[in-house]
Simulated scan of single mutants.
Amino acid sequence: MDIKDRQIIRELQKDGRLSNQDLAERVNLSPSPCLRRLRNLEAEGVITGYTALVDQKACGLPITVFIRIRLERHSDEGVRIFEQQIGRIEEVLDCYLLAGGDDYLLRVLTHSLEAYEDFIRRRIHAIPGIASIDSSFAYGVVKQTRVFPV
């Protein structure tokens, strides 16, 4: 990746709906080379897809919960089962594997505390091998960006 590829990525992170013409202008390329670079970035897996950013509150999901999970054992089978089951739960938007005291960090959106309790009881407690669950509720957002430095 060179500087032009990085500029293309940055501009698309800011606005994924840019036309090729507008993108080319923003990165100071003619449209054909810009489109060729864009297709190469997609083919190489650098750009993995496009999506709409949606306001969670407008969709009735005002509560963000971060859930830290520690497993009882770290056997290959136990980890595989946990990760497979978490991967099937649509309420889990992100699941990170951690170093340190906890094993996983999940990000979940919910519409109420009652719905969150039900989620924990029905979906998370059903996964075998969990030693502990610790929840933190976000009451505000200081910074949130989808644009990372490239």
Rank of each mutant, 00 (worst) to 15 (best):
I3A: 02
Q85K: 11
V79E: 05
F148R: 09
L29G: 06
L23I: 15
N28M: 07
A115G: 13
C34L: 03
L113D: 08
I47V: 06
H74Y: 12
D55Q: 02
Y50M: 01
I47Q: 08
T145K: 00
D134Y: 08
L38G: 00
F66Q: 06
K143N: 15
I133Y: 12
E11V: 10
L41Q: 13
A131L: 14
Y116C: 03
V46W: 01
V46G: 01
G129K: 12
K57T: 12
A99Y: 12
D15Y: 10
E117Q: 09
S19W: 10
L71W: 06
V54N: 12
Y116E: 06
L98F: 02
I81K: 03
R68P: 00
I9W: 01
T110H: 09
E44D: 01
E42Q: 09
S75Y: 05
M1G: 05
I133N: 14
L98C: 11
I120Y: 09
Y50S: 02
I8V: 15
S75I: 07
Q21D: 08
K143A: 15
R37Q: 15
A126P: 11
A138G: 03
N28L: 10
P33G: 09
E90N: 14
Y50L: 02
G60F: 00
D103K: 07
D76W: 04
V79N: 07
I86S: 08
D94Y: 05
R17P: 02
R88G: 01
L61S: 07
I86G: 06
E77M: 15
R36H: 09
L23H: 15
N40F: 00
A126W: 05
L113P: 00
V142M: 15
S75C: 05
L97Y: 11
P33R: 04
L98W: 00
Y104P: 08
A131P: 04
T48Q: 15
R146A: 10
V147C: 07
R39N: 12
S75H: 10
D76H: 09
D134P: 00
G49H: 11
R73Y: 09
R17A: 06
N40D: 14
R36E: 13
R123I: 03
E114H: 03
D103R: 02
S30P: 13
I133L: 11
R123H: 07
G101K: 04
E91I: 08
R80C: 01
P62I: 11
A99M: 10
I8Y: 13
R10P: 09
D94A: 00
D103P: 05
A52M: 11
D55A: 05
Q7F: 07
L98A: 09
G16L: 08
A99C: 12
Q13N: 04
A58G: 10
A24P: 05
R123F: 07
I133C: 14
V142E: 15
Y104A: 03
E11P: 07
D55S: 09
V141P: 08
L98V: 10
A43W: 00
S135H: 00
T145E: 11
L41P: 05
I133S: 12
T48G: 10
L38I: 02
G140M: 14
P62Y: 11
I86H: 05
L97P: 00
N28K: 12
G100V: 12
D103T: 06
I81T: 05
